[in-house]
Design a protein around this nucleic acid. Structure first.
Lengths: 194, 194
DNA sequence: GCGAACCTACCTTCTAGTCGGTAGATCGTC
DNA sequence: GACGATCTACCGACTAGAAGGTAGGTTCGC
């Protein structure tokens, strides 16, 4: 067990689900303390300020996202299957309610009132994700495996926007199936009919 | 001037922009009081509680949306032009920064921690908007003016999700043009090539 | 003189964050 | 291997300020 400080991890995990539920201003140290089973000042011991806590959380979230995508890239070469795996991941997260929203997408809606350090990470995530999607779409287009209506860049922005919007609709309808209902036809359209 | 109580309107207008910036938990009565130029308790005179204020705001927002759509329907019959006018409206709001986000879309991201009375209005807005979009798409499809890849229902959900996601991306990139960049190709694709 | 609009003054609860301290593990060093 | 010194994780008690909200009074137009 290379398990340094389980408590800090617990705090981060708890913070993640609280942010997913209600954003930066939707939770307090007291909420975290209650769930983790620790006293409020002990959280300050691990994360001096709320900004520290959330910045660390988002940075770690981004690392996990990079690792997840790298793992997909290692195992899947077909561009359309990459996209399908990506959306399948989110479909699973939403269906089992483990993480029914992207942390960065949720925080992005609060951007104007977010501490700058957190805002920077959130913006960086959007750029990184759309860049990855654009690279996948471009490759798929070149290989003739994907049929794009416009440029890979624009198609990537559309894809990302649709994913985020589908998360929002799934939440608004209280129905996890909404996500797949929106994304599966989109993936089908991207698949080339040769 | 049939102008009953300008102050209440000022409070609502201010609350609207504050909510658009940071959601339900991202503003306080003190913030509203500062902007409107009034003392905090005076807001309670017009809106007894924060829930009252926000519920009223969302209800009025929905009325305006209904009126706006009714106005469009009265002046435009072509389905594709209806959709273009709808997105052009939002493009203008985002570009001039007057209202760079849909109140209900923003509140939807906070749904799990929203007071139930507000949550009900937000959910109702999603259903209403997607129903309108579905009706436009269905008519356009029947008239042969729109080419749908799937059912009007699913296409409407996709359209709405893309609009909301595009608002989010425009905010994340800090670039109003992002909205049009995403929506114009989508509208072009829906236009039937006869 | 009545009611709407607004005020000052106040309350309670919650907020992030601080302070000083303790129990226990780890440490170097003699 | 016994000794203090240091470090980590945590705690209770506390603070200043902000949160939503209340009580009671003033001002002003009808």
């Amino acid at each position: 067990m290379s398990n340094l400080s389980t408590t800090a991890d617990d705090i981060l995990a708890c913070t993640r689900s609280l942010i997913i539920a209600g954003g930066y201003h939707g939770f307090s140290y007291a909420d975290v303390a209650d769930v983790v089973g620790i006293r409020k000042p002990s959280i300050h011991h691990h994360f001096p300020s709320k900004v520290d806590l959330v910045r660390t959380l988002v940075a770690r979230y981004r690392e996990e996202a990079r690792a997840g995508i790298a793992h997909l890239e290692r195992n899947i070469s077909d561009p359309i299957e990459l996209l399908r795996s990506y959306t399948a991941y989110w479909e699973a997260c939403i269906t089992n309610a483990s993480a029914p929203f992207c942390v960065c997408a949720l925080l992005a809606s609060e951007l104007p009132v977010l501490p700058e350090e957190v805002a920077l990470e959130v913006r960086a995530h959007f750029r990184w994700l759309s860049n990855w999607l654009a690279s996948v779409l471009e490759r798929g287009s070149h290989e003739g495996r994907l049929q794009l209506v416009t440029t890979p860049r624009v198609e990537a922005e559309t894809f990302m926007a649709t994913v985020h919007g589908a998360m929002l609709s799934a939440r608004a309808y209280g129905d996890p199936k909404t996500f797949g209902t929106i994304l599966n036809p989109l993936l089908d359209r991207l698949s080339a009919r040769s």
